[in-house]
Write a protein that binds this DNA or RNA. Structure first.
Lengths: 93, 93
DNA sequence: AAATTTGGTTTATAAAATAAACCGCTTTAT
DNA sequence: ATAAAGCGGTTTATTTTATAAACCAAATTT
């Protein structure tokens, strides 16, 4: 039984990655809505994904308002796919 | 995005359930070998699965030696299947 | 210009996973 | 027969993780 990457084996981080896998980029507010998480929790988990090199986080502006956008990296994509493969071994898919 | 049952969203508990889904019953020693876990960790996680009603744990003897065997319950089976369905929403399967 | 909202971050708390220490019983070696 | 080592676990302590609460600066609304 393969190890399940602990960075991905977390509901909120997995949800974020799942969204980012299907979309060119997504901003903080959108991710918060989709995942129904609190801002604090999301902030912490984005940091972890970012520190792991699985996503990039870019701070910009839209008019005068700040906007934090996230994208999955190649490394993140690969890790996600490997995680899915590993999980299959547990789920009997 | 559906909630992921926190009792199953744990590598070791999921591994145990995965094994028990495919086998009539399994004993402590076998589960320990297959999951490559420590006895302490396994003991704690079996308790949690048992408290949740997902498995039954039976203590018996083989000659003079104690033997702890585990079986998944109907409730456990159902929970596992629902967990798999919920996960699919994250994995894009 | 005070109060509220937006878009977050930082810090504190609760819960979880894991390992280390321990325990009773059995077997083996002396 | 007795000490030492092994087996099958459990209990307790430690570390990590997840989550929420408190906070902050800038912008907007009243």
């Amino acid at each position: 039984m393969k190890e399940l990457d602990p960075i991905l084996h977390s509901q909120l981080r997995l949800a974020v990655m799942s969204i980012l896998m299907n979309v060119e980029e997504a901003d903080f507010v959108y991710l918060k809505e989709q995942t129904e998480s609190t801002a604090g929790n999301l902030s912490v988990q984005l940091d972890k994904l970012s520190s792991a090199g699985y996503i990039t986080v870019t701070k910009g502006f839209v008019g005068k308002k700040t906007r934090t956008t996230c994208q999955v990296t190649d490394q993140g994509r690969k890790a996600f796919e490997q995680y899915v493969e590993a999980l299959k071994g547990y789920l009997n898919l």
